[in-house]
């Protein structure tokens, strides 16, 4: 790989007994969109905090823009933009004032300050609300403002911790359009965490992280290739019998996931008709699809990356903190 712009070696973070990050190695090339995918508590935010010099690693080293995060945090901070997982705006100030504050603490030159702020507001479609207090913004507008702020000082690397969590699909799509656009115009490197599978697909490369360790790293296609071919899911009133028979006569080992049988087969289009024809146990439903990153995670860890419940919990947490933020 070309000279890495983010490089971590054996990064470890312990919170007392708890080892939140357990030896992370990764390299991100300039101009790359690199995704960090993993379930709640996997250590995504902790890793970002170390790379952004907000936490010091218990062990290991990391270089961001070629600078050691432990030895010269101030220089690292000049090169990066950061959008936190949790809200971090001053909602008593207007959108523009939040950006002005940022421009000052990041030493954006006075001559370009105003133009740069206008440009960012424009880019994230916030111009007409720029002089309203942030507490009157919707969740999606607040998030867009945070992204605008993260990019305001033209960082070399942008860190985004769950930038689209809790946003509606349209806003998520918009934000992705902006990010892609930004990357193609400025060549910025983007390091982001997410647990939306569909979002991870937009990344050039993805690291799948579980319990503080990277379990797989590669392009979305490479990762999906780890799952053998296609994914077939079926339901039946006699799952156990079905599983047993499939194992015996089709030489495929199905796994039980939420009352379904799930199997990976090299050629799904041929397998499904055969299964329906030859299986003596009655089949209720059957489906065939290309492997997703969720399947990769499932294969590597034996667990689904996120069930619906956890998704809801996140949304509630997000809402709770937005609401709290409004009470000031």
């Amino acid at each position: 790989m070309a000279e890495a712009v983010i490089e971590a070696k054996g990064l470890v973070k312990k919170y007392g007994e708890l080892e939140a990050v357990r030896g992370i190695d990764l390299q991100v090339a300039p101009g790359e969109i690199f995704g960090f995918l993993g379930p709640n508590g996997a250590g995504k935010s902790t890793t970002i905090s170390m790379l952004c010099t907000l936490l010091s690693p218990t062990a290991g080293t990391a270089r961001v823009a070629g600078i050691d995060v432990v030895h010269d945090p101030a220089r690292v901070r000049q090169k990066i933009g950061l959008v936190f997982q949790d809200p971090s705006l001053d909602d008593q100030l207007t959108g523009r004032e939040n950006l002005e504050f940022h421009a000052f603490i990041y030493s954006v030159p006075a001559e370009v300050r105003r133009a740069r702020i206008d440009q960012m507001l424009e880019l994230l479609q916030l111009t007409d609300r720029a002089s309203s207090q942030v507490r009157t913004y919707s969740g999606g507008m607040k998030r867009r403002l945070e992204i605008a702020r993260g990019m305001l000082h033209e960082p070399q690397i942008l860190f985004l911790d769950e930038p689209t969590l809790g946003l509606d699909p349209q806003t998520r799509r918009n934000i992705w359009t902006h990010l892609n656009d930004l990357r193609s115009r400025t060549g910025i490197t983007i390091f982001m965490t997410t647990h939306y599978m569909d979002e991870a697909e937009y990344c050039d490369r993805i690291a799948i992280i579980d319990r503080g360790q990277i379990v797989a790293l590669g392009t979305p296609d490479q990762l999906k290739a780890m799952v053998g071919g296609d994914v077939v899911t079926m339901t039946s009133t006699q799952l156990d019998a079905a599983a047993e028979e499939i194992e015996k006569s089709f030489r495929v080992t199905p796994t039980r996931v939420d009352g379904t049988l799930r199997m990976e087969v090299p050629d799904g289009k041929k397998f499904v008709p055969r299964l329906v024809r030859e299986l003596t146990v009655p089949v209720d439903t059957i489906s065939l699809r290309r492997p997703s990153l969720d399947d990769v995670f499932l294969k590597l860890t034996g667990r689904a990356i996120r069930d619906e419940e956890a998704g809801d919990r996140d949304r509630m947490r997000q809402m709770a903190s937005r609401w709290m933020g409004r009470r000031r």
Partner: peptide, 22 residues
């Protein structure tokens, strides 16, 4: 992926801590 983007902003004096006083 170009090498220049990563290396260009780095001056030779990386050992001197950056001046954040201003």
């Amino acid at each position: 992926m170009s090498v220049e983007t990563a290396t260009k902003p780095m001056a030779a004096d990386l050992t001197i801590p950056v001046d954040t006083r201003a």
